[in-house]
Structures are given as C-alpha cells and as structure tokens.
Design a protein around this nucleic acid. Structure first.
Lengths: 343, 343
DNA sequence: CCATTTCCTCAAAGCGCTTTGGCTACGTCT
DNA sequence: AGACGTAGCCAAAGCGCTTTGAGGAAATGG
C-alpha cells in the first residue's frame, strides 16, 4: 500500500493525502478525517526511504559502534545507548548503527554521513586531539560530541562531565583523610577523560607538594581483569612505599582491584582506601560491593537521554540548546574511604 | 556530489557510471578504472535512500531495542549486539535500531518493516506463544528469531541454545553429587528460555522421583539485586529444609546470589553448590568469582555473529542456511559445585 | 560487401514521497 | 459589478539512484 494507491482509493490527489498526513493547514477538516480513517484501516505507512529522498530528513541519528573481533563489548557504551534509546522513542526516531573498527572511525563516520541515511551524527570515546572533529566540522550536518578533545579548539558542541573536578575533589578528600601515597587505575591514556582525570588528580596533589609516582599509575582497558592485574602489581610494592589510596576510572576496574585487595587479605577502607568513578551501570552498583565504594557519580544513561534530546531538537529545529554543557559529578562517600593507616 | 554530476564530469551517462560501480560486466575495463578513480578523488558516495528506493534493498537489518524509562539496560542485549556488529562490519551492513516499549514490540516491529528502512528483521527475548511470530510470518521479509517460542508451531527460522538439555545436565550433575534439595533463580516466567530451563530441571529431578519446591523457585529480572533478594529469601528457610543446590539462569543473578551466600557466612561449593548459565559476558567471568562458578556456557556474542551471518546471507541470496539451529551449551565444572553436605 | 554478433554506451522510466505553483469556486470588499 | 482574498484541491516536477530496452560501432562470418 503506497500513497498512490491510497489517494486513488480515496478519490483524492497524492498532494492532498500527503498534506493531510503531515498536518498542513490547507486541508479541509473533514477530508483529513477521511484520510486518517483510511490510514488506520489499511495500515498504510509512508516509505521512509522515499520520504528521506524527498525531504532530506531521515528521522534517524547515526552513531558509530566501536567493535571489532577481539574488542570486548563495552558496558559503558550500552548503558549510554539505553539512554539514547529512551529519548529517541519519544520522538519516533531511530538510530543507524555502523559498526566500525576502532582504527577506522573517521572513515566509518564519513560513510555514514555520505550515505544520506542519517540527519545527525554523534561521537563518543573522544581522544586527545581527536581527528574526527575536523571531519565532523567539515560536514554540514548537526553533530554532538560526548566528551571533549583536549588539544583541539573547543569550538564544537559537546556534552561532558567535569572529569578534572571530579578527580580533583576525590583526591582532595583522600588527602584530608591523611593519605600521602596514591595510585591511579585509569582508562587508556589516549582517551580525553583519562587525561583529564589524571590532570585533576595531579593538581590536587601538587597543592600539597606531592606528585604521583608513575609506577603507581596504570592505563588499561576498563575491564575487571585489568583492574585485578594492575592492583596486584601495585600491591607487590614494599609496604612502606605502597599507596594507601587508589583512584579508579571506572567501577569495573574497581571490581577487579577490590578482588586483588581481598586476595592480599587487606581491608578496603582501612588498609587501603578507594574512590572510583561511577557511570551508574545497572550491573555494577558501588553500594553493592562488599565494602560499599566511595564514588564520583555521573549517569551515563542520563547523558544519553540529554544527547538524544539535543540532537533531535536540532534536527527538528524546535529548540536551541547551549552548545556546550559540562556536568558536575557528585562525590558520594561510602565505606571504602577511611583515614590513612599509621605507617 | 551525486551520480548526475559525476557522470557529467566524466562525460559518461549515469547508467554507465552506475554499472561501473556495481560491478556489471558490460563495462569496459578502462572506463571502469576511470570511474573508480574519479570516485576516489571526489569522495562520491551513493545516496543510500535513493539506492534503497530504486532497488528495494537497504543494506541494513532492523532490530527492536527493548527500552523504556525505568527499564534497565541489559548486558545480555549488548553482548549480543556486539556479535551482530562484528559480522555486519564485514559486509558493510548496518542496523536500524528502533527503541520500543516492551509492551509494544509488535507495533514497533510493524513500523520498522513498513518504513522500508530495513531488509530483514530480527527478534529476541522470545516469550511463550509469542505474538510477534504471526506478525513476522505475515510480512514478506526475511527474519530470524533468537530463541524459540514454546506453544507456537516451530515453523519459523531460529537460532537457539538447548536450554532444556543445559539445565537437565546441570541438575543431573548436582544429583550425582548427592544433592536432593534444589532451588532455581530463573528469569521472568514469560520468557521461553526460562520455561525451558525449568522444564529441563524438572525432567532431571523427576527421573529421581524428586520435585522442585515452588518456594525455592524465583522468576525475576536478571539483575544482581534480584539474585541477592531471591537468595536471601531462600536462605531464611530452616536448615534441614533449605536447598543445598542452586541453579541460576544468568551469571548476573549468580553475582547477587553469591553475595547473599557470603553474607550468610556460608561457603559456596561446600554448604551450597551453584551452577549458573553463562552467556559469556565480558564483564562477568564465572572464573573470576571468589569461588569460581560451575556454568553451562554458550556465548551470546557468537550467537550474534551467526545470526548476522545468516540474515545477511539471506538478503544477499548468496547462501542458504539451515532454517533452525539448536546449539548445545557446554557444562563447565569449577569450584562452586561440591558434594552435598551431610544433613 | 553485407549480415550478424559482440561490446559498450545511452536515454528514459520508475521507485514513493514532498512541494511548488497553479486552478477553481466561493465569499468579501469597495 | 468588478476586484480581490481565501479555502481547498490538483498536476507535475523533483529527490538520486537502478534498470530496461535500444542503439551505434567495431568485429566477425559467409
């Protein structure tokens, strides 16, 4: 069933039917009702591809899904996707997901844009001096960045959390509790958030004239296994050199790290204090750890909702948004942070 | 840059350029090279919407993403999605994700199909007597089901794991270890896999003249919190009535259940034995549990790869596949299963 | 040397929709 | 009465691609 058949059935022109469906004013109320009734009865649905071709609007937003054989599925990504979906549902939008090898994200993005299948693009997992920014700016298509790219002009629309502040505050708290030796289990060094979190930590330490021992810093994929390995390595240090406070870039890393601490028969919140960043993953609640975890919290899912809201608003030209948003993470103190042990 | 401009630039007709690009034989080798060169230089990309309209093929497969406010993001879903993506990448396919309220999956599916945006459909989270099957069969579009639907004629293409056999085998193992009182932490009762797993368990017990006490069965969403709650309830039973063996439908449920067991100061693999079904989630490895978990294992991700392979093959008409596949889950014994404690 | 085949190319139709630019009929204003 | 507005409808063009059916040129055969 297509427009032609439908309009013929109704004894109307395609124009009128189309207008009736799209809410144009120059259609008699009665005629419109007739059309809507026929649509309900026949189950007619406009062909999106044709609509897309005619209007240039596709009602969909494109995103590149980082994936490749051997690359693990990322809980952070799907948590975020859920947020996006939640909002998109309200506007009858959908996503076009292009899976892409992480080494060819620029290419995947270009293909997606050129395909004419999407109205707007979205990128995340930003890196320092990210090459995708130039590509996005050269396109004449709305886009939104989740995160930022240190080293690039901040002249693009983004939504980010204040990673520096979050880790600055967390470090500050631990300093107040008397800790002097710190470790950091961070995400891969090329990611913007990892750089900023380390910067925030460095800044807080510097205020007290302290520096972070590079041996106590790890940059790894954010899996529990890597957390375990990194923590084990740190725990092998001599007791009086060993850090008493650990910051983790994700509760997933913390999961592994806590396991290492348990295996070493150390007590979390007493022998070692820990603060992790919490993306509010459904699967991994910091309050459910055996020793509930102190965290800097900011919901990835909420970010997804907001990003969908902004992108869809932009496509529909219904609203204008601040181009750049920086969310504060909350510092939530639980039992994993305690006074530094006496040496 | 579109076909018209490109062909004009080359002094060729649109037909010839189009044929050169799509690998038709009746194009001079030299001409084809010229065309390809021009494409590289100009960065020309065919407009997918137009291609779609002309051919009826979209190069994308549609799936409904179960999501709604308050509905938690599902690790199982994203693990699966990763598999799909991995395979789709190889064929330059992408997905169209329609987020949908779980109560309106049939509607979402219909809209997706009618939109003309997809070549094939995929559904999962099958329920007993699933209403989506009739809808799918009425569409003239390839589709593939992940899972099955008990109570419906098995005349549709599916990929499933043998849930009955998995839980039958698991139960059998525990029986051999001397266990007589069992519990089951299952997924929601309306899901096909949940029904079948329970059936498998019932069958094994029946062979020994045992039955499953309904008070020891829970049907809940598969989150760690629900696992914790369900296990806590079970542990409140009198010691000589209390189950000594627990089956979990997911390692996520097991995560919570193990926490409950720890909190009750019971020893896993000694006081209580446990077997969980393992979808091979990246985030949650059964071997990383404090007491490594015995599992029935079948990779969701591998299922994703296979499903994408089949759907894409069908769209391209390159291959024919067996319509129905039933995978065996492996039973992997680790430390969480031990001999039943003496009463 | 003409007829036939083969190779390459083209013009034009069509996919299903939106949108431009009328056109008609009727009421209103001067 | 004529000029003008307006409400309601329509025919046709156009979005960018693929594909059908045809045609011209070169190569082959009798």
């Amino acid at each position: 069933m297509n427009l032609k058949q439908l309009s013929h059935m109704l004894g109307l022109s395609q124009t009128t039917v189309s207008r009736a469906l799209n809410g144009y004013p120059e259609v008699n109320h009665e005629t419109r009702e007739r059309v809507l009734k026929a649509v309900r009865e026949t189950g007619y649905r406009p062909n999106k591809a044709a609509q897309r071709l005619a209007t240039g609007k596709a009602g969909s937003i494109g995103l590149v899904m980082p994936t490749s054989p051997g690359n693990s599925s990322d809980v952070h990504f799907s948590e975020f996707l859920t947020g996006l979906g939640e909002e998109a549902l309200r506007h009858d939008f959908h996503f076009v997901l292009t899976p892409a090898d992480p080494n060819d994200e620029v290419g995947a993005l270009r293909r997606l844009a050129a395909s004419g299948n999407v109205d707007a693009l979205f990128v995340n997992y930003m890196r320092g001096h990210d090459p995708r920014l130039d590509m996005l700016k050269s396109l004449s298509m709305p886009f939104l960045v989740h995160g930022r790219s240190i080293g690039s002009e901040p002249d693009y629309p983004f939504l980010d959390i204040d990673n520096e502040a979050a880790f600055y505050d967390a470090t500050k708290l631990l300093l107040q509790l008397g800790h002097r030796r710190f470790a950091l289990l961070n995400g891969p060094i090329y990611f913007d958030f990892a750089i900023r979190r380390k910067n925030g930590m460095d800044a807080a330490l510097a205020e007290r004239g302290l520096t972070l021992d590079e041996a106590c810093v790890s940059h790894t994929p954010m899996t529990d296994e890597q957390g375990l390995l990194a923590m084990e390595r740190i725990l092998q240090m001599e007791k009086d050199k060993r850090p008493t406070a650990v910051l983790c870039s994700s509760t997933v890393l913390a999961l592994g790290a806590v396991r290492a601490i348990n295996q070493a028969k150390l007590r979390l919140g007493e022998d070692i204090s820990m603060i992790a960043h919490d993306d509010v993953l459904t699967l991994l609640k910091p309050e459910n750890f055996t020793v509930p975890l102190t965290t800097t919290r900011s919901s990835l899912r909420a970010a997804g909702v907001r990003i969908a809201e902004r992108l869809i608003g932009e496509i529909k030209h219904t609203e204008t948004f601040p181009a750049q948003e920086l969310w504060k993470a909350e510092l939530i103190v639980r039992a994993s942070t305690g006074v530094a042990p006496a040496d």
